[in-house]
Amino acid sequence: MSCKNVIVEEKFSELEHFIDELPDKQGDLIAVLHKAQEIFGYLPEEVQLRIADKLDVPSAKVSGVVSFYSFFTMKPRGKHVVNVCTGTACYVRGAEKLLNELNKHFAIKPGETTKDGEFTLDALRCVGACGLAPVMIVDGKVYGRLKPEQVKGILANYR
C-alpha cells in the first residue's frame, strides 16, 4: 500500500469512527457530511459512496444532499480560502469592488482555485460583521473596512 493510500485510509477510519459514535444515524447525514468535509477538505465521489454505504442510504441521496447545500463542495479547496462577504451591508459599502479586485489579482472567479492550489476565492452571504463592512475573510480571519487597494498587501502575508 502506498504512503498516500495509508493517509487516505486513516481519514476514512476517522470518519467511520465518527459515524459509529452517532447515537441515531437517522437524520445525521448532514452532520456526517460536515465531518467528512472537515477531514477530507472536500467531498469527492469516492467519499460520498463510502458514506452512503456506511449509513445504508442510496448514494443518489447523498449526492442530492451534497449538491443542494452550498457549504459542501466536490472540488478540492486551495491552501488558503479567501472569502468576500456579499451580504447587503457589505454590498452597499463596496463588496463588489473588493471582489473585482480579487478576481483581477488571482485571475479566477468566485468558486475557483488558483492553478498553484494556493488560494480558493469565494463569495459568502453575510458573516454578520456588518459594522466592519466591507469585509474579506482569509482562513477565518476577518479583515474589515477594506479598500480594494489594501487587498494585495494582506494576501502577500499568506504567500
Partner: peptide, 8 residues
C-alpha cells in the same frame, strides 16, 4: 444542535 449547510 443541528447544523445548516448554507441554504437560505
Amino acid at each position: 444542535l443541528k447544523y445548516g449547510a448554507g441554504a437560505f
